Simulated assay, not measured.
Amino acid sequence: MTTTNLEYLNPESACPAQGLYSHMTRVKAGEMYYVAGQLAVGADGGVVGEGDFDAQFRQVFKNLSDVLAAVGCDFNDIAKFTTYLVSADDIPHFMRLRAEYFPTKFRTKAFAPNTLLIINRLVKPEFRLEVEAIVRARD
């Protein structure tokens, strides 16, 4: 599927994607943004949703959306995500929430590639997930 500056690709010769992502993104030449991992941090600087994965997911993606909007971009400009979870037990929650959320943020049914990693912990032990992105700037 093609957005303005990106084309999400799933080659027929490749195995099926194992979730709501594409195997690769073709990025048309242009400026790129590398967005730092977003955490469940509220406007007051405090941790949002301690112990509540769903609340943290919503806050992380709100923060990512806010950062994108500040430079005139949205989810349709994302070339790639990297997602960090601190527990494999949260994978089903992540997949469910992403299935609900992504169709509301992307113009197409194809979504940016995503690498999902399970790690020991994040910067604060209260955080359950972190999401970073590579974004194609708009012309």
Rank of each mutant, 00 (worst) to 15 (best):
G37R: 02
Q38V: 01
L39I: 02
V41P: 08
D44G: 03
G45T: 06
G46A: 11
V48S: 05
G49I: 07
G49P: 11
E50L: 04
G51Q: 10
G51A: 06
D54S: 09
D54E: 15
Q56C: 05
Q56R: 05
Q56N: 06
F57Q: 06
F57R: 05
F57C: 09
R58Q: 12
R58P: 00
Q59L: 07
Q59G: 02
V60R: 03
F61L: 14
F61Q: 13
K62P: 03
S65H: 13
D66W: 02
D66V: 06
D66I: 03
D66Y: 00
V67T: 14
V67L: 06
L68C: 07
A69K: 15
A70T: 10
V71F: 11
V71C: 07
G72F: 04
D74A: 05
F75P: 12
D77R: 11
A79Q: 09
A79W: 09
F81D: 07
T82H: 12
T82G: 02
T83Q: 04
T83P: 01
T83N: 04
Y84N: 08
Y84A: 07
L85C: 01
V86R: 05
V86G: 04
S87E: 10
S87Y: 01
A88T: 06
D89A: 11
D89T: 03
D89R: 08
D90F: 04
I91R: 03
I91K: 04
I91Y: 01
H93G: 01
H93Y: 00
H93L: 07
H93A: 12
H93S: 11
F94C: 01
F94T: 00
M95H: 02
L97Y: 01
L97D: 10
L97I: 00
L97C: 01
L97T: 00
Y101H: 14
Y101I: 02
F102E: 13
F102I: 02
F102Y: 15
P103C: 01
P103W: 03
P103E: 06
P103I: 01
K105P: 10
F106D: 11
R107F: 04
T108F: 01
K109A: 12
K109E: 15
A110P: 08
F111I: 09
A112Y: 10
P113D: 10
N114P: 05
T115S: 13
T115F: 00
L116N: 00
L116H: 00
L117D: 09
I119L: 07
N120Q: 14
N120T: 14
N120K: 14
R121G: 09
L122F: 05
V123R: 13
V123P: 03
K124V: 10
K124F: 09
K124Q: 15
P125M: 03
P125C: 00
F127L: 15
R128D: 10
L129G: 02
L129F: 03
L129I: 08
E130S: 15
E132G: 14
A133M: 10
I134W: 09
I134C: 11
R136T: 11
